[in-house]
Write a protein that binds this DNA or RNA. Structure first.
Length: 813
DNA sequence: ATAGGGTTAG
């Protein structure tokens, strides 16, 4: 009975595995555990007393075969279907039970039928896999013989055959799998699509791909085969088979067309999907809701909203009613384009049509709002979702977790994870990677690594997203040798790595100005059998620009086509920014022209770079015009675009225009950023307009805007310079209350300026605050105050300061 | 058989 223990535990808790990691995953402990347990299963058979075991000496092969004709009834003890802890007895008829029940293969196949009967398919497969491993390759004739001789007519017998074929396929014993499949055809047992899938997967690198076609040539085989190829993203082979066999050997069905459309879309070939759509109509099929929804999805993902809407109108015209999926697909399309207002309009339309938004609709909306920076609206949606009583799933929770991280609300993550656990959901590999990415970005590498460990414990090994998060963390902190060490270890492990991981480290080198290592790693990409992407080149171009090798960068731009790559907006913007940095506006504009000529659309960053370039040349009004053009071109300027222009006008001393742009931001629904306020406070203070600076500060704080420390200290120091010590103290206090960490620099900035204006008594107020906060004096600040006290003849303070200098040992440093 | 979540570059 001992051997049952781990198995029994499995009855109680069913574990879920991420779909994509099911295949090929041999490191999962449960299966290793099970594999080591299963051969020792203490399966008990009670051989009837009237049928004593044959003494070994009399067991000749002749006797055995003679006895094999008799059929006898045997009692079998099996775990009870109601309670796995108990056993129950089943009567089974066998030909020659003595012989067969001593054969472990037979007893295991009995167990297999028992498991299948109770729907425990995973355990069934595990047991079959163990048998196959024990028997080795070319064991299929023996096992098939036992199955067909003794188990014909048993319930679930077909299931055993099917899974035997599947497990052989999974164990890469393809010849055995094909043998079983052939026997199944003889016995008229239908093989499942899952089995075909497994076989196809095992055969994909061998020359045996045709084999299943040879053994299983039913009307439906080609459809199954094409579906299976589509599921494995082997579009070329699917199309080849479709073209070769269409008309003569099989008639495609609507599902096959839908699968071909789906696969084409998933691989990014929407045009091809369109052709299949037309071809389907030519074959006399009416596209159904799956056909429409699938192609709509493909169009939406490709950003072709207009065509998608066209299809959705056709759909209605031809009497295929759009359903929730249709609307969700369209809403997702708008989400991808960042057009959440259009998405909202669609919701209204679907409600008018009597369709209720479901959990997927809400997930898309929350994700869209949070990604667009409107977390408040995301929260409203989240509340609505909760109030509707939907049962939340891990995807919805993941979206919300990601929102929290992206808005820097890291302390709220814990309770959400707590809630996920409380409702009985398990974190999956995406949820983990969101957490790990979030913690890495928040700088909490310890939490991230702790989560990696938990992933291993839960048998969800960290994947490329997780490795990428850790590598980015290290690269951002210029811990490049550590990043490289990890990357090398991953390369050594022999698995084909995601080129993104190379990109991250190459970018790290480029940003650090280490172009030798950047180029070295770039070459390693080819050694690893991978291909660089446009991101790889953009990082290299950025690196060359940063190192002042602009010509090299430009040459790289023009060599992209040799690698089959096209420059994108980032490529051009990087180069344009570099030439701008050198004050070479001409080349910047030249590159812009080249970019437009090549059909690469400038984006909001490109425009910001151009505006900055013109501002730096004193042409603010040209920049202002560019900002207006952006609206005409349908590109919404972001905070950085406005800040760039505001900075231009600030540096030109045009306070009025700076504030005009600030107001325009608010009017356009764009929340000014902390940088916007830094610029505005700075320009007011430079122009001695402290009245307005105070007013703005009070107003903004009142509104709950979180300012940077720079904004406070700008105003405080301006007051010091003007000698408004009272105001300086007031705002210093507000800065402290806002929770900023105050250092000696903040105090010395204030004290310096007060001393310069001979406001020694006010300087003393700050000195007291500073000592009260436990911040030690430094020599420089002492000397400043010492000189001021001498100038003002404050001998007492002078002596006090001298004493401080001597007793604190500042002179010895 | 169709829909929703996570990495890299300016």
């Amino acid at each position: 009975m001992d051997g049952f223990e781990p198995i029994r535990r499995r009855f109680k808790k069913k574990e879920k595995k991420p779909k994509c990691e099911r295949e090929n995953d041999t490191t999962r402990t449960p299966s290793m555990l099970r594999r080591s347990i299963l051969p020792f299963l203490p399966w008990k058979f009670k051989i009837p007393a009237r049928c004593p075991p044959t003494p070994p000496s009399t067991r000749s092969s002749a006797a055995a075969s003679a006895a094999a004709t008799a059929e006898e009834e045997v009692d079998l003890s099996v775990p009870s279907s109601r309670s796995p802890d108990r056993e129950e007895t089943t009567k089974v008829r066998f030909r020659n039970p003595r012989r067969f029940l001593r054969d472990p293969r037979v007893s295991r196949l009995v167990f297999c039928h028992n498991l299948a009967g109770r729907g425990m398919i995973e355990d069934l497969r595990e047991l079959l896999k163990q048998m196959i491993v024990d028997e080795g390759s070319n064991s299929s004739p023996t096992l098939c013989g036992i199955l067909s001789d003794n188990f014909k007519g048993w319930d679930c017998n077909g299931l055993i055959w099917d899974n035997l074929a599947k497990v052989y396929a999974e164990t890469k014993m393809v010849h055995d799998a094909l043998f079983v499949l052939g026997k199944m055809i003889d016995l008229n047992i239908q093989a499942s699509i899952l089995t075909f899938d497994s076989l196809m997967y095992s055969l994909r690198c061998t020359g045996l791909l045709r084999a299943p076609v040879e053994v299983a040539r039913s009307e439906n085989t080609y459809n199954t085969l094409i579906d299976s190829l589509c599921k494995q993203f082997r579009l070329n082979e699917a199309i080849r088979l479709f073209q070769e066999k269409r008309g003569c050997e099989f008639r495609p069905c609507i599902v096959t067309f839908n699968n071909l459309i789906c696969c084409s879309c998933n691989m990014g070939y929407v045009g091809l999907a369109n052709s299949f759509f037309s071809m389907m109509i030519k074959h006399g099929f009416f596209p159904d809701k799956y056909s429409y929804n699938t192609i709509l999805h493909g169009l939406c993902v490709a950003g072709l909203m207009e065509e998608a809407l066209q299809y959705s109108e056709d759909m209605e015209r031809y009497g295929v009613e759009p359903d929730v999926v249709t609307y969700n697909v369209l809403i997702y399309g708008y989400h991808l384009l960042g057009m959440m207002s259009e998405a909202q309009k669609l919701i209204q339309r679907m409600v008018v049509k009597g369709l209720e938004p479901d959990i997927v609709t809400y997930t898309i909306l929350i994700s869209g709002h949070c990604r667009g920076g409107d977390v408040e609206e995301g929260l409203v949606m989240w509340q609505e979702l909760l109030s509707r009583g939907f049962e939340l799933n891990i995807i919805t929770y993941s979206v919300f977790l990601d929102c929290l991280f992206k808005r820097g609300r890291v302390d709220e993550v814990d309770w959400l994870v707590e809630e996920i656990r409380a409702v009985g959901l398990d974190l999956d590999h995406i949820a983990y990677s969101i957490l790990i990415n979030g913690y890495c970005r928040a700088g909490d590498i310890n939490r991230a690594i702790q989560l990696c460990r938990i992933m291993y414990i839960n048998k969800i090994p960290p994947n490329s997203y997780v490795h990428g998060a850790v590598l980015s963390y290290l690269c951002k902190r210029e811990m490049l040798s550590d990043a490289r060490w990890i990357l090398d270890k991953l390369i050594e492990s022999g698995q084909l790595l995601d080129v993104v991981l190379y990109n991250i480290v190459i970018d790290g080198y480029a940003k650090a100005g280490d172009m030798d290592d950047a180029v070295g790693l770039y070459e390693q990409i080819f050694y690893s059998g991978l291909t660089p992407t446009i991101v790889t080149f953009n990082s290299l171009i950025h690196g060359f620009c940063k190192s002042g090798m602009l010509n090299k960068a430009r040459v790289l731009l023009h060599s992209l086509s040799l690698h089959g790559l096209s420059p994108n907006a980032v490529t051009y913007t990087t180069l344009m920014d570099a030439y701008r940095g050198e004050g070479n506006i001409n080349v910047m504009v030249e590159l812009l022209d080249e970019m437009v000529a090549k059909g690469v659309a400038p984006n909001v960053v490109t425009y910001s770079v151009i505006m900055k370039g013109f501002c730096e040349q004193g042409q603010m009004w040209v920049s202002r015009k560019i900002l207006k053009d952006m609206y005409d071109k349908g590109i919404s300027p972001d905070q950085i675009a406005y800040n760039t222009l505001i900075q231009g006008f600030c540096e030109a001393g045009n306070v009025e225009m700076s504030f005009f742009l600030h107001d325009e931001m608010l009017q356009k629904g764009l929340e000014p950023s902390p940088v916007t306020y830094n610029l505005l406070f700075n320009v007011l203070c430079l122009h001695d307009d402290l009245k307005n600076a105070d007013r703005l500060l009070d107003m903004v704080v009142e509104k709950g805007v979180r300012l940077r420390k720079f904004a406070y200290s700008t105003v405080i120091q301006a007051h010091c310079i003007k000698g408004n010590a009272y105001k300086a103290v007031l705002y210093f206090d507000k800065m402290v209350k806002a929770g900023f960490e105050i250092s000696i620099k903040d105090y010395s900035g204030v004290i310096n300026r007060l001393c310069k204006r001979n406001l020694l008594n006010d300087a003393k107020v700050f000195l007291k605050m500073m000592l009260r906060d436990g911040i030690p004096l430094d020599l420089e600040l002492c000397v400043v105050m010492l000189n001021a006290s001498r100038r003002q003849g404050d001998h007492r303070f002078e002596i006090e300061l001298q004493a401080i200098i001597i007793t604190s040992g500042l002179l010895c440093e």
